[in-house]
Structure formats: structure tokens, C-alpha cells
Simulated assay, not measured.
Amino acid sequence: MDSSARPSAIPGYEDWPGYVFKNDLVEVPQRSRQLAEVLGVPAPASNLQISRQWRETHDGVTTMALSWQLGFGPETRAWLVVPEGATGPLPGVLALHCHAGQKYTGASRLITFPDNQSEPGIETDPARHDLYDGRSAATDLARDGFAVLAHDTFSWGSRRFSLDTPPEVYNAAAAVHESTIAKAAGLIGTSFAGMVAHDDLAALSVLESLPEVDASRLGCFGFSGGGGRALMLAALSPKIRSYAITAMMTTFSSLLPAYLDAHSWLLQTPGLWKVADWPELTTHSSAEQFLIQFASRDPLFPEQGMRDADKLLNSLHDTGSYTGSFWPVEHRFSADMQRQVFDFFYKTLGNEITL
């Protein structure tokens, strides 16, 4: 039977295998080499061509729409938010959106858009309301004096696969399709998490190149799957000075046997545990300080696993480098938790902010 009679299993990404085959593994510090190999992170292209679509000042901030092409799949959409009237380079923070089981959208859930701009699907994306207390974390952090970049990563938002389904059923189709993506990634020598890390590393290079940003003061943060992305990015890139993880920390052993299906391929890359336990990956980072927020009532993680992770983290790091905090909430990034993250970045990156 002619194979062309079968539909593509990776629609919109038929050029992805060729990209992985021709690109070497990303260059990382020696301590992170094994991690990069297990994830199979291809080196992102350097000197990406960044396009600016629009710029609007509203509600105390200026929001700019950006895009770039990574060399495979659809173009990446992103938004840079800075304080209104800011002059001079600002500390830069990469805001990493969560998984949420909502792949039709991505970074847009972290942004407050001006009245004359919007993004497809944002009106019906429940993540901002249900998981972020209705707040726009990237926009709110920018008001505190930061240049914040939020981008769609591999398989979300503008980088989603073309599943030929209407928006209202896309997320259900994408949930099933994630295992197909993981199969394809394994076949070509990478992983789902490795490709997400590839897109995040590319976005970090964009952030540091922007004239609005002080490249010597870079950080990142994320909730849930975004927290996992923050950990991987900090482990792979020495450019990250500080980072924050929310509701995405436990020991791998605590996931067995009951919690495996609570998580996506972002957390469960084959062979990752042989490199390090999840808390131990923090030792791969050169960041000066990091914050981890635990949601003690989180149904996605056993509380004992979180407590064990916190104990391990305290044993691995000098006093003052690791801050752990437990919050009596379910799986969410509440307004108060967001405030703690913003204050953490002001302490670790923002001591010279001038507006």
C-alpha cells in the first residue's frame, strides 16, 4: 500500500525530523551534558530573525508582538512586555506557560492584551481563570520593572500541530496526540521535553538580544509544566541567574505507582531518572538563587513526595541559594504566590531597576 495514502502523524511538522538530523546537540556546560543527551536537545539556530508586528501602550505597560522562525514547523509567536515609559535596559525574565491540557493557546494566557489586540482562543482558555487567579503573570511582572518575554513553545499556541480539528475540540485531540509526538521524538533521537527545551533556549537567546533587556540579568519562571520548563532551562543554560518553579517539584519515586498518569511527557522523559532525580537537577544550574513553591494540596503530587524533595533540596544547596515555600492550595498559581515570585525577582535581579 502506498504510504502516501495515510495522513501525516505530525501534521505541520513534516520538516521536523530533517531539522533534528542536521543539527548537532546543543552546547551546554559539562555538568549538563548527560541531561542534554538524554533529552536529545538540538542546538537552536543562532541569530534568529525577529519580526515585530505591533506595539501598544496600555494599563501601565507597553506590549509588543514578536515572531521568529526556528527552521521547522510553524512560526513562533511571542509577546514582550515592559513598563510604560521605561528607559534603558531592564532585567529580563522569560515567562514559561503551563501545560494545562490546553494546547490551542500557550503564552497568551500570561498576557493582558490591549483592547484592539487579541489572540485566537484566549477568550475560551480556562487556564488563566482557573489556574492563575484570573491574573496575567507576565504583564503583572513587567509592571514591577522587568522586560518579560512570553513565547509559545513546541506544540502549543502558534507552535501547535495542524490536527485538522476546530478550536473547540483541539485540546482533546492534542491530549491524545502528545503520545504520538513522543513516539516521533524518540524515533528521531530527541524527546518531547527536549524539543520544548530547544524552543525555550531559542527564546532565551531572543530575550538576551533585545535592546530593552540587560543580558547580564536574566531569569525565568513557570507554573506546573512551565515550572518543569524553568528547571530544564536553568539546568541547560548558564545565562539564567535566578529562576522560580511553582507546583512542579517532587521525587520521581513518589510518582510510582499511582501518579504517572497525572503528568505529561514533559516530566517523564525515558531515562531521565538515570541522570538525576527531579530535585537533583537543580545542581546542574549555575543560577545564584532559585525559588520553589509547593502546593501542599496538589492532587497531582503526593505531599510526602514534595516534602522529601524539599528536604533533599535543602541538603544539596547552601543556605540562601534555595528558597522553598509551601502553600495550602491545590494545583494553582495564586495571586499571592505570583507576588512572592515577583518579589523574588526584584531581590535577585532588580536591585538596579530605574523607570
Score class of each variant (00 low, 15 high):
residue 236 L to V: 02
residue 320 G to D: 04
residue 75 E to L: 08
residue 117 Q to P: 00
residue 300 L to N: 12
residue 24 D to Y: 04
residue 130 D to S: 14
residue 183 K to E: 14
residue 297 R to S: 11
residue 260 L to T: 11
residue 299 P to F: 02
residue 338 Q to T: 04
residue 70 L to N: 07
residue 60 G to Y: 11
residue 13 Y to I: 05
residue 152 D to R: 05
residue 196 V to A: 04
residue 163 L to I: 04
residue 125 D to I: 04
residue 103 K to D: 09
residue 136 S to T: 04
residue 199 D to H: 15
residue 65 A to S: 09
residue 236 L to D: 06
residue 246 T to C: 14
residue 119 E to G: 00
residue 35 L to A: 01
residue 296 S to D: 15
residue 156 W to D: 03
residue 207 L to F: 06
residue 159 R to E: 07
residue 355 L to F: 15
residue 133 D to A: 11
residue 138 A to T: 02
residue 327 W to Y: 15
residue 306 M to A: 10
residue 223 F to W: 12
residue 168 E to K: 10
residue 22 K to R: 15
residue 345 F to H: 05
residue 286 S to C: 03
residue 154 F to T: 08
residue 93 V to R: 03
residue 342 F to A: 12
residue 134 G to P: 01
residue 310 D to V: 10
residue 179 S to R: 10
residue 292 I to V: 14
residue 227 G to I: 08
residue 88 G to Q: 12
residue 55 R to A: 11
residue 17 P to Q: 05
residue 91 P to S: 03
residue 202 A to H: 03
residue 107 A to E: 00
residue 99 H to P: 05
residue 175 A to N: 09
residue 136 S to F: 06
residue 50 I to G: 03
residue 197 A to Y: 04
residue 354 T to R: 15
residue 199 D to K: 09
residue 147 A to G: 06
residue 175 A to D: 09
residue 112 T to E: 15
